[in-house]
């Protein structure tokens, strides 16, 4: 079954999901923190838009609420909190270059292919739509993970973490029509608390090592045990 035969609204969701995946790449390669936060805000807004379209397509009223919640949390509140933190930490002009940008982006591409490969066995269940959307959201999750591994800057790592959450949310909304409301609220609450705690930790890290390059957090390795 080809994508062009899908209902228009589902095609729209797929397009939005693809742009979410694109913003993941932008996030991964963006060196300037402030721009990366903007990219993240766009990703949140796109996720919310995808949710709204799913709500229209599936006539599921509780998804309107999820879409609003996502928009508030991921596109407005968390980017705003990050902005304020970056300003207070005087990192507005901070540039955090990736070590091997070409390699990392290639790895991200490989992750997208890997995600599509992983969902191949799911032929029996569903049509082209679900498989694509699960693959895309898995790719967003894995690219977030990659970002957390390769970025040495605490704020960039948090952006990776939050974009993983976006991928998860996209999967939950588009593949399953949204999790039960209790779970969705719980997850949103956890994400919000996590963001507040991340803020606390930025200051704790800076107080302890004078920088937010978490690469320098290397006192607790097994090999250095003897020197301590």
């Amino acid at each position: 079954m080809s994508i062009t035969t899908l209902p228009l609204l589902q095609q729209l969701v797929l397009v939005l999901a693809a742009i979410v995946l694109f913003t993941s790449f932008v996030l991964l390669a963006q060196a300037r923190l402030v721009s990366a936060i903007h990219a993240f805000a766009w990703q949140g807004a796109l996720t919310a838009a995808a949710t709204a379209v799913v709500a229209v397509a599936g006539h599921e009223p509780h998804l309107y609420f999820s879409a609003a919640l996502t928009f508030l949390l991921k596109a407005l509140l968390i980017p705003w909190m990050l902005h304020r933190l970056v300003a207070r930490l005087a990192l507005d002009r901070h540039v955090d270059l990736l070590r091997h940008p070409a390699l990392v982006v290639m790895a991200a591409v490989a992750l997208v292919i890997f995600s599509y490969w992983l969902v191949l066995p799911m032929v029996r269940l569903e049509l082209a739509f679900t498989r694509n959307i699960v693959a895309i959201s898995l790719a967003v999750v894995l690219i977030g993970l990659l970002m957390m591994v390769f970025r040495q800057q605490a704020v960039a790592q948090v952006l990776g973490f939050m974009s993983m959450e976006n991928g998860l949310f996209l999967a939950a909304v588009s593949a399953t029509g949204g999790m039960p409301l209790v779970v969705e609220l719980g997850v949103a609450f956890d994400v919000l608390v996590a963001m507040v705690l991340f803020g606390v930790f930025f200051f704790q890290i800076r107080d302890s090592i004078d920088t937010l390059d978490v690469d320098r957090l290397n006192r607790l390795t097994e090999s250095l045990e003897d020197e301590r």
Partner: peptide, 21 residues
């Protein structure tokens, strides 16, 4: 709030956050 404690907490937060995601 020792550097080691902050490092341990950050590691705990990030690793468990990723895992749980």
């Amino acid at each position: 709030r020792t550097p080691e404690a902050v490092e341990a907490a950050w590691k705990y937060f990030i690793l468990c956050g990723v895992g749980i995601a």
